[in-house]
Amino acid sequence: MKHSTQMFAESDLNNRNRRYEQLFKTLFLLMTLLLIIPVLVILGTLIVKGSGSLSIEFLFTEPTNGMTEGGIFPALLGTVWLVSVALLISVPLGVAAAIYLSEYAPDNWYTRIINLAIINLAGVPSIVHALFGVGAFVIFFGFGTSILAASLTLAIMTLPVVIVSTRESLQAVPHAFREACWNMGATRWQTIRKVVLPNAVSGILTGVILEVSRTTGETAPIMFTGAAFFLPYLPQGIFDQTMALSLHLFVVATQVPNVPESLPYGVALVLIGIVLLMNTLSIAFRMHLRSKKKW
């Protein structure tokens, strides 16, 4: 008899605990969903209101009539310019820095300072990067407001993205492979070139795609360094100013009077489409890699 009451009491306690657990689980799920659902609703609104202005023509014609009509071609092309030049600078630099940190750097005070600098570089507000770009590239180095100055600013700002993702992919290659190579008399560089990099390159690419996405969306750093509100001509080289998609959204949303509502929605949709496409690509690529185990 005593035995059975004890059993009963225990199962009662268990039931209560299970109810609590279920309650908390539901609560946390709700919070997660509340984080995601508004954003999905917002994205839906963007699509509904913006898709009307989307067309091939929208993508490939110039804005007309004081930017209240026409397309976004100069802004789109400008973003391609800015992102390409920024990547040409930041990818080699970032990959090299990551190789140093992952493969050569001893565990000492200056490596710690480098790591701290990377964290800070990522944490400095984008508008301060813009000020730096103005002070350093526009004025001091005399590049003026140009694609070069803007892309340098973007490159430095997104450098931590490349460094961190590259370092992660390098370190995902097991240390035992390196030791095996060193034991055969390979130098660090031979080991990196023949074993580490070939096995990290897809991971690095994933990070680069992510950087394309980041760079495409940045606005503040290019506002005063190379991107213009409106230009009647297309950029011909890296010393020209250019329009940019992100800044164009800001301009048509806030600076231009009498813009039909669908136009800024269309620009926002294109911008977010590019960014999310890049991110999805990067995620898909990463999952593909994970499924293709090489060791």
Partner: peptide, 11 residues
């Protein structure tokens, strides 16, 4: 969550 983090600030 990762995709949410990617939405640009101007958007």
């Amino acid at each position: 969550v990762e995709l949410l983090a990617a939405i640009p600030s101007v958007v």
